[in-house]
């Protein structure tokens, strides 16, 4: 079998998803024997040249330079797969999309004039065609392996788009929302984390972004019935997938 050329790219992000690639541990030897790794920012210095069969892209687009860079990556690769919440939804840094970037700059940096940034942090799919999105903050190593294996076998990855509740129920975790009135985002969140939080009696934070057809309005109604204010509800959604959750809520970035 011809080993496909793979590149792992980074935009605005914390590198956690690239680390998940390195964290595949048992499968890392398979990864390097099945793919020719031609570019990988987190793993070593390699010049960007030539073409790729598959590009894994971490991070959101949040500077003018990145807007050009993502187009270059797209032009160099046959398939583009985004990894993680930043690339799929704009990340935590997309919180600025609901604020004034100049305020943020002044608040955070001693010399705000030195900061070159766009007013919004946006998902990769706002800029170029994306073949597949792996959600999660960070991505799940098993899903990464499933996606890469499926790429080699030319089949559709068996990665669910349904709710976290489905996994929760399979694991037999008693529902925190129903039994404890905890504001769990599970019903609108994509499965994939393996029920990390509800297994520990913590409500879901929505790391894997909105599930297919997420009905945000109805869940917020349930939260309000459980005694949470509208403001608290919005705060629950305003994390690493804020841009995607708000869009799923109304299609306009507002509730």
């Amino acid at each position: 079998m011809k080993r496909p050329w793979i590149g792992v790219f980074k935009f605005t992000s914390c590198d956690g998803c690239q680390l998940s690639v390195l964290n595949m541990e048992d499968e890392l030897p398979d990864f390097v024997s099945l793919f020719q790794v031609a570019y990988f920012r987190e793993a070593g210095d390699m010049p960007l040249r030539g073409r790729f069969d598959i590009a894994l892209v971490e991070g959101s687009v949040s500077t003018g330079w990145q807007k050009a860079q993502i187009i270059e990556v797209r032009e160099r690769t046959r398939h583009l797969v985004t990894i993680g919440a930043c690339a799929a939804a704009g990340g935590l840094q997309a919180l600025r999309n609901w604020a004034d970037i100049e305020d943020y700059k002044r608040l955070v940096y001693p010399s705000p004039d030195m900061i070159e940034t766009l007013p919004c942090s946006t998902p990769v799919s706002d800029h170029v065609y994306v073949d597949y999105e792996l959600w999660g903050c960070p991505v799940n190593c098993d899903e990464l392996s499933e996606m890469l294996g499926s790429f080699l076998l030319d089949r559709k990855p068996g990665i669910p788009a349904y709710s976290l509740c489905m996994e929760c129920k399979r694991k037999g975790v008693p529902c925190l929302l129903v039994a404890k009135s905890e504001p769990c985002l599970g019903p609108v969140t994509r499965a994939g984390c393996g029920v990390l939080c509800p297994s520990m009696e913590r409500p879901c934070y929505g790391c894997f972004g909105p599930k297919e057809g997420a009905n945000i309005g109805s869940l917020l109604e349930a939260f309000r019935n459980a005694g949470f204010s509208s403001h608290e509800c919005v705060l629950l959604l305003d994390k690493m997938n804020t841009y995607a959750f708000r869009e799923a809520g109304t299609g306009e970035g507002r509730f």
Partner: peptide, 25 residues
């Protein structure tokens, strides 16, 4: 919400799906 909770706990719901677990290894 289409969360699926009802179907997962309903004692008469029997739907399953099959898939091949096959990672890089």
């Amino acid at each position: 919400l289409e969360c699926g909770n009802c179907t997962q706990l309903c004692p008469t719901c029997f739907c399953n799906s099959t898939y091949d677990a096959l990672g890089l290894s």
